[in-house]
Design a binder for these strands. Structure first.
Lengths: 356, 356
DNA sequence: TTGAAAGCGATACCAC
DNA sequence: GTGGTATCGCTTTCAA
C-alpha cells in the first residue's frame, strides 16, 4: 500500500490536519513541526492519493461550458463526439459539461451563447471561435471575470485564452508539400486549390505548402497559381476540370480546403486517376471513400476527436488543480492517412484516474 | 450536482445499502423494492460516481507486474517510458506496478521474472513475450491461477492472454506498399530488406507488403527477391550497395527491420539519394535524422509509448472492474512520419478519471 | 430482507 | 498553531 497522510501524522506525532496544512503550505503550522513533517513525507515518498483528493472536490460542484460552431461539417461532428465523450466521463466525476452547438459561424449567436453559459454559472469555457476583434475582447473580459477560456479547433491568437488545442495548419501545409515532393517526378507542375481567401486555416495550409515547395529545390516543382473554390464541390469540379485541360502535364493537386469530391470527380472523368496525385485534408466518410477509390493519394488528418475531447479536461485541470497547460498552444498530431491506414479503429487512450 | 445513491435511497424510502445491493444485483433485496429502486435510478439517470467507487477500491490493494524485454532497443525504450508513466499515474491511485526490465530476448530469464512476480503476489501480468510454446503454456497456467496476462508489443497468439496491445504488422506492410506505389513510377523495381527470417513481426511486414504490391496491378511493380540483414547496419549496407549496383533502375527499398542506417548510407554513397525511395519502420532518434536528411522517404511508426502505457491500465480495468477489453486484439495506430511531421510533440492524452 | 455504521484518503472548518 | 470532526459517494460488514 502507498503511504497516507494518516501514517505521516502518526509518525510525526501530530494530526492529519496539521500534516495537510504543512505539506500544502497553508500556513498556521509550527515551522519545526512542518520541517519534521516534510522530512518524513519525503522519506516515505508520500504522494497524495488522487482519488481521495478528487472525492473532496466533488463537494464544490464544477460547471464547464463548451460551444461548438459549424456542427454541420464532418470535422466538427467528430470534434463534437470528443466533446461528448469528455462530458460523459467528467460527469461521472461530478463535473457538469454544458455543450451548446450552433451551425455555421454566427458570431452574434456565439456571443449570446457565451453570455448564456456565464449566466448559468460556468467556471470555464471552451469555444471554437471566429478570429475577430470582438471575440478577442470578449475572451479578455471573461479572463477578467476569472472565467478561463480554452479555444479548440480554431484559435484567437493574442487573446487572453489560457490555451489553444488544435492543429498547426502551417505545419500541415508543409507536411502536404513534403508528401507531394515524394510522389511526383522532379520538375512537375502542381496546382493548389484553396477554400476561402479570408480563412486563416486555409491560408496557413497554403503558405506552409508553398514555402516547402519553393524550398525543396531538388524537386524543382512548378507551382501554378492557387485558386479558391469556396469549399464547394461544384466549383472545385469546374476549376479542376479546367486546370487538367490547360495542363496536360499536371502531376499534383493540393486541396487545402473542402471540395475534395469535386476535384476527384474531375480527375476521374478526365481519366487521370492515379496519374495526378492529390493531397487533401480531413479524414471523414467522404475522404475515406476517395482514398479507397484511389482518387486521393493521401489525406492529412487533424485528430478532431482529440481536440473536442481534451478541451474540457484542460479546463477542468485548470479550474481544480490551478494547473496551466504545458504550453499555451497544444498542437494535435498531423496524421497521414492512406488507403491502408485510414480505417483503423481510432482507439482512444484509456480512461485514467486524474493526475496531480 | 449529479444524482447520488443517497438521493435515490431517500426517494425510495430505503437505505443507501439497499440501493447499492439492488442496483448491483447483489441479491438480498425484496424484488418489489428493487424494481422501485431501479425505476427511480433510471428516471434520475443515476450513474455511480466513479471517484467514490475508486476510493473504496483502494482498500484492497492491487499489484500489477510488467516485464519488458529488449530494453536496449530504441523502440522498447519508448515502450518503457509509457510503462513508467502508467505506473506513476496508477501509483497515485493506490495501485502498485512492478516493472522488470531485461535486455535481449532471454526466455529463461523471462520465465524466472514471471515466477518472481507471481511470488511477489501480482494480480495481473503484462509481458512483451517471445512467441514460443513454452511461453504459451506458461500464460495458460497463469490464466488458470487467475492471474490475467496482457501481451504488449509482441503477442503469443492462441494463448489464454486476455489481450494484446500492439501493432498489426501485416497492416503495416500493406501501408508501406501503398506508400511505395504512390512514390515510384509505374513499372519500377522495388527491393525488400528484412531482418531475421524467424521473426514473426518482420515476416508479417514482408507479407503485407508483397500482397499489396502484387495486388496493385496499376503500379506494375517488379518485386526483387527479399533478403535478410539480421537487423545489422553493416549487412544492410553491403546488401544495399550490391542491389544498387545490380539494379541501376532500382526505384524503391522497403526496410522491414532494423538496418535503416546501413541502407541509407549505401544509397547516399551511391549518389542515389531521393531517387531511391525508402520506406522503413519505427520512429526514433536515428530514423528521425534520416528523415530530416532526405534519406528516408517515410517511416511507419507503431505508437510504442501507447503500448507500454495502456498495458497496465487494461489489466487494472480487468482486475478491478472485471472489465474485458473491447477486443482481444488492440491494434495501435500506424502513423506515417515524414520529414515534416516527425518532430511534433507527441502529446499524450490527458489523464482522466476512470470510467465505468 | 433490511438498515446502520464503519471505513477509503484528503480537505475544510471550527473550536481550542 | 493545533486537533477534532464532518464531508465527499460508495462499498461492505454486522446486527437486527
Amino acid at each position: 500500500m502507498a503511504v497516507t497522510a494518516q501514517q505521516i501524522a502518526e509518525l510525526a506525532g501530530v494530526s492529519r490536519g496539521t500534516v495537510d496544512r504543512a505539506l500544502h503550505n497553508r500556513g498556521r503550522v509550527n515551522p519545526e513541526v512542518a520541517t519534521r513533517i516534510f522530512r518524513i513525507a519525503t522519506e516515505l515518498g508520500y504522494k497524495p492519493n488522487l482519488i481521495g483528493q478528487a472525492l473532496v472536490r466533488t463537494k464544490r460542484d464544477c460547471k464547464i461550458g463548451a460551444i461548438l460552431q459549424s456542427v454541420e461539417t464532418p470535422t466538427m461532428k467528430i470534434v463534437l463526439e470528443g466533446l461528448r465523450q469528455a462530458a460523459d466521463e467528467l460527469r461521472a466525476s461530478g463535473v457538469e459539461v454544458i455543450i451548446r452547438e450552433q451551425s455555421g459561424l454566427d458570431e452574434e449567436l456565439l456571443l449570446e451563447n457565451i453570455e448564456a453559459l456565464v449566466i448559468e454559472g460556468v467556471q470555464g469555457l471552451a469555444i471554437s471561435p471566429n478570429n475577430t476583434p470582438e471575440l478577442r475582447q470578449c475572451i479578455d473580459q471573461l479572463d477578467e471575470q476569472n472565467i478561463p477560456v480554452v479555444t479548440f479547433n480554431s484559435d484567437v491568437p493574442g487573446s487572453k485564452r489560457i490555451g489553444f488545442i488544435g492543429v498547426n495548419n502551417y505545419r500541415g501545409g508543409q507536411t502536404a508539400a513534403g508528401l507531394m515532393c515524394q510522389m511526383i517526378p522532379a520538375g512537375s507542375k502542381v496546382f493548389p486549390l484553396t477554400g476561402h481567401l479570408s480563412n486563416t486555416a486555409h491560408n496557413n495550409r497554403l503558405n506552409g505548402f508553398c514555402e516547402v515547395i519553393e524550398q525543396e529545390t531538388a524537386c524543382n516543382i512548378t507551382l501554378l497559381p492557387f485558386q479558391p473554390c469556396f469549399d464547394r464541390d461544384d466549383y472545385a469540379y469546374e476549376i479542376t476540370q479546367h486546370m487538367l485541360r490547360a495542363n496536360p502535364d499536371l502531376a499534383g493537386i493540393y486541396v487545402a480546403a473542402n471540395g475534395q469530391q469535386g476535384v476527384c470527380q474531375a480527375i476521374e472523368e478526365a481519366g487521370r486517376k492515379r496519374q495526378v496525385k492529390v493531397v487533401a485534408f480531413d479524414l471523414n466518410e467522404i475522404t475515406r471513400k476517395l482514398l479507397q477509390n484511389d482518387c486521393l493519394s493521401c489525406v492529412l488528418d487533424q485528430k478532431a476527436f482529440e481536440q473536442g475531447y481534451r478541451a474540457p479536461y484542460v479546463l477542468y485541470e485548470y479550474i481544480t488543480h490551478k494547473k496551466s497547460l504545458q504550453s499555451e498552444l497544444i498542437y494535435t498530431d498531423i496524421a497521414i492517412r492512406t488507403k491502408y491506414n485510414s480505417d483503423l479503429e481510432i482507439t482512444m487512450m484509456p480512461e485514467l484516474p486524474q493526475k496531480e
